[in-house]
Simulated scan of single mutants.
Amino acid sequence: MVFGIISAAVHIVLGAAFGGWAGGTLGLLIGAVVGLLVGAPFGWAVASAGVYGPDARGVWLFLVDHTWSLLNTAVGAVYLAVHLIFGHQLDRTTSQHSCRVNLVEGVSPRYATTIGTVCAGSSPGIQRHEDVHIFQGRLLGPLYIPLVLLNYVLFTIAPVWLLWHDHTNAPINAFTRYFEIGVYPHVWNEAIAYRIQGSPPR
């Protein structure tokens, strides 16, 4: 319960600080409301599922997620709120003491997607892959999302990955495959995660 309350409060303060910086007093108030709308569902999920254990690991990762990796956590909180709006369910059993928020349903039945500490549509067979993304975010903090987005942009407009892509087993023979089979598995964060667990889509 304490972790959930603190988490929600951190999101409110973050929203207020950003709003105040962008638009003075009115911006501060709007930012605080946005922080509440995003932080309350995230705090509820953290408390409801007992995401962070009371041990040293749980406390340490909670601190990392709400300081150095706060940008990732905040974006993940937005991601969680959208899932909840669409009626997706919190996976309390998988989330408990895992230091991540798991959702039963994903964006697509074919893929699990992790943003910040929120993992949607995962399964035991691919959870390690998704946990790599959470670790990457915690390690790189505020640099993680910009670096991932930059890699997507670069590999979309300058497909150097074609030099080492497996053209025989995963041919790029359709527009959608350019992104799904080409760009996506070759960006740095996915390439590392697939090396640790799983095979890229073909």
Score class of each variant (00 low, 15 high):
G27Y: 05
G27M: 03
L28V: 13
L29H: 07
G31C: 11
V34A: 15
G35Y: 08
L36D: 03
L37Y: 06
V38Q: 10
G39V: 00
P41A: 10
F42Q: 07
G43R: 02
W44Q: 03
W44I: 08
A47N: 04
G50A: 09
Y52H: 13
G53L: 03
P54G: 12
G58S: 13
G58L: 07
G58F: 06
L63Y: 02
L63T: 10
L63W: 05
L71G: 06
V75E: 02
G76R: 00
A77W: 03
A77R: 02
L80R: 00
A81S: 12
L84Y: 02
L84N: 00
I85Y: 02
F86Q: 10
G87P: 00
Q89P: 13
Q89E: 14
L90V: 13
L90C: 14
D91H: 07
T94L: 13
T94V: 15
T94P: 09
S95C: 14
Q96D: 15
H97W: 14
S98Q: 14
S98C: 12
C99R: 13
R100L: 08
V101D: 11
V101S: 10
L103A: 12
L103C: 10
S108N: 11
R110P: 01
Y111H: 14
T113A: 10
T114A: 12
I115C: 12
T117F: 07
V118R: 06
G121N: 08
S123I: 04
G125V: 04
I126P: 12
R128E: 11
E130A: 09
D131M: 13
D131E: 13
F135K: 10
G137V: 08
R138L: 09
R138W: 05
L139N: 14
L143F: 13
P146W: 12
L147D: 11
V148M: 15
V148A: 14
L149W: 15
N151C: 11
Y152E: 09
L154G: 06
F155L: 15
F155C: 01
F155N: 01
T156P: 00
I157T: 15
A158G: 00
V160T: 05
L162S: 00
D166W: 01
H167G: 05
A170K: 00
A170V: 03
P171S: 06
P171H: 01
P171D: 02
N173V: 01
A174T: 14
F175Q: 06
